[in-house]
Design a protein around this nucleic acid. Structure first.
Length: 291
DNA sequence: TTCCAGGGGTAGA
DNA sequence: TCTACCCATGGA
């Protein structure tokens, strides 16, 4: 390590809080060292060798150690990605203020300040989300590890470290995807998504534009292969839009047990009812709602 | 063996 | 809009 990048954090920011508030840190190429409080991530930057990033908080400063140190343009890009992943630019003060009226929710949300870890690219988050559908979390972890291990670009000095594969790498290796990554029927969706991105038919990064109306973003997400209502709502959350609940088996079980007295087959409207009053913060209100 | 897990796509009504 | 059925994979 020859280089340390310093970056200021927002007030009351907690790296461990943000990391642990969501399961994404368990998915390659993320790795969380709980003892050291260091978030590891291998990243492929344009115009640079694959770098390994160690991200650590010291007081109100974020320390980012890239190995090997990339050239200036790639360094700026690395920091830009870290900012995005940790949502350093996202203003969640309104949500936190509303939490003030709900002590249980406040206690749960306080550690992360409402921030949930995400991936640098919408492509990566889309693939991860598709890999959470109709499977167990355990399988999602395994699928992601295989995808990165088989198709991700390797670090020069430490080839066991790999970055998340680019769409081009997935599109160019359909056999490896099917035979070695083993995504089950999700394979076809991920392959199609990779091909559409690699071929320039779609631009997922454009969905980060905050001026786009949420219904339009949702509409474009629903057009993606393997993305239905649950995945679209999850991706909207990952894009910083919290209006819509991702109704899945987990949410269903939680709302049934906590608010519906175990009702047998609640409708989506009944499932959403407990969080209606949260308006544009519904997703976070559910997410931090104690079980 | 059967079921199903943080669903999606399709056909048919 | 709603329902029924199928979809690979791996664990219970």
């Amino acid at each position: 390590m020859h280089q340390i990048l310093h970056h200021p954090t927002p007030p009351d920011f907690s790296l461990s809080g943000v990391v642990l508030a969501h399961g994404w840190y368990q998915l390659a190429p993320y790795r969380w060292d709980a003892d050291a409080g260091v978030l590891h991530r291998t990243e492929a930057l344009p115009g640079a060798d694959v770098v390994h990033l160690e991200i650590e908080q010291r007081g109100d400063t974020l320390w980012v150690r890239p190995d090997p140190p990339p050239p200036p343009a790639a360094t700026a890009e690395a920091l830009r990605r870290v900012r995005w992943c940790l949502r350093l630019d996202e203003d969640l003060s309104e949500f936190m203020a509303l939490c003030g009226e709900d002590p249980d929710l406040m206690a749960a949300a306080l550690a992360s300040g409402g921030r949930l870890l995400r991936s640098p690219t919408v492509w990566e988050d889309a693939v991860r989300t598709i890999m959470t559908t109709n499977t167990t979390w355990r399988q999602t972890v395994a699928m992601t590890r295989r995808l990165v291990g088989v198709l991700g670009p390797a670090h020069g000095k430490h080839p066991e470290l790999r970055a998340f594969p680019a769409p081009e790498a997935v599109a160019a290796n359909p056999e490896a995807l099917e035979m070695r990554v083993r995504l089950g029927y999700r394979n076809a969706s991920v392959l199609r998504l990779a091909r559409e991105l690699a071929g320039g038919a779609i631009d997922l990064e454009a969905l980060k534009d905050p001026t786009l109306p949420t219904p339009e973003v949702r509409g474009r997400l629903l057009e993606l292969p393997g993305v239905g209502p649950y995945a679209a709502a999850t991706l909207l959350m990952l894009l910083g839009r919290y209006d819509e609940l991702a109704i899945d088996s987990e949410l269903r079980a939680h709302v049934r047990a906590k608010y519906l007295d175990g009702a047998s087959s609640p409708t989506p409207r009944e499932l959403a009812a407990p969080y209606e009053r949260w308006g544009g913060w519904r997703y976070l209100a559910y997410w931090f709602d104690p079980r």
